[in-house]
Design a protein around this nucleic acid. Structure first.
Length: 224
DNA sequence: AAAGGATACAACCGCCCCACA
DNA sequence: GTGTGGGGCGGTTGTATCCTT
């Protein structure tokens, strides 16, 4: 039986205070990242090591870019998601200053909704899998079902199968087997009819016109 | 102005991967 | 080859804030 990553008793949970943030920053500034399990004790924090790591990686690191995602960033996320699936760390790795958690949250709260509105299945980026007007489902708002996503086992074979060879290359890169990989990704989208949707994406701030809602594009949006 | 619903996002949980002994 | 521990990842939850009625 695996022992827990930390002694849960006596550890703080929930939002980080300014003092805790400062302690973590100060410690890492002096000692550097790593040894997360022993870090909390050494830094005088009553936190789980994982919690410290997450806080640092996602919010305290000096090179983190905060604020809204630019349109080109959003486009890139969509493209990379079509290529890689829910491999947020890989996607975030190609967005300088963005973290996997931030990309994941942005996908779930903004992009996924947007794609659904456009009649695109956010899971496979194909058209017509989703109705343009999803029927309301009587579930809790934060549940995955409310976003038309069924609960599934972690790293299902289905999910893995969806990942392309290119994704495998990215895995290789991460593990150091490939020194450098240029995907050659650009922000450009295919020409009509798919660019019609792209235009719509850019024009769709929040309100869809009835004309847009009635539109159904005949082919796959991003990748063929 | 108040209540309820919707949304955004910070944080936690638990599983998996990998290095190392 | 196997077991173990540390770190990383993706899924999920909790809650603060915003929006609508």
């Amino acid at each position: 039986m695996r022992k827990p990553c930390c002694d849960k008793q006596g550890t703080n949970k929930g939002a980080w205070s300014k003092q805790e943030d400062q302690k973590l920053i100060d410690y890492i500034r002096i000692h550097g990242e790593g040894c997360w399990r022993s870090l909390p004790k050494a830094a005088g924090l009553h936190r789980c090591g994982k919690s410290c790591r997450l806080r640092w990686i996602n919010y305290l690191r000096p090179d983190i870019k905060r604020g809204n995602f630019a349109q080109d960033e959003e486009d890139l996320i969509i493209k990379l998601h079509a290529l890689l699936g829910n491999r947020w760390s890989l996607i975030a790795g190609r967005l300088p200053g963005r973290t996997d958690n931030e990309v994941k949250n942005y996908w779930n709260s903004h992009i996924k909704r947007k794609l659904i509105k456009l009649g695109i299945d956010p899971n496979n980026h194909k058209l017509s899998q989703y109705p343009l007007r999803p029927q309301p489902q009587h579930v809790s708002p934060s549940s995955p079902a409310s976003l038309n996503v069924a609960r599934k086992p972690r790293r299902s074979s289905v999910d893995k199968d969806r990942v392309s060879d290119a994704a495998s290359c990215l895995d290789d890169e991460r593990s150091g087997r490939v020194s450098k990989l240029d995907l050659g990704l650009t922000i450009a989208f295919p020409t009509t009819p798919t660019n019609h949707i792209e235009e719509k994406q850019q024009n769709t701030a929040s309100i869809m016109t009835s004309e847009e809602e009635n539109y159904t594009a005949p082919t796959l949006l991003l990748f063929r």
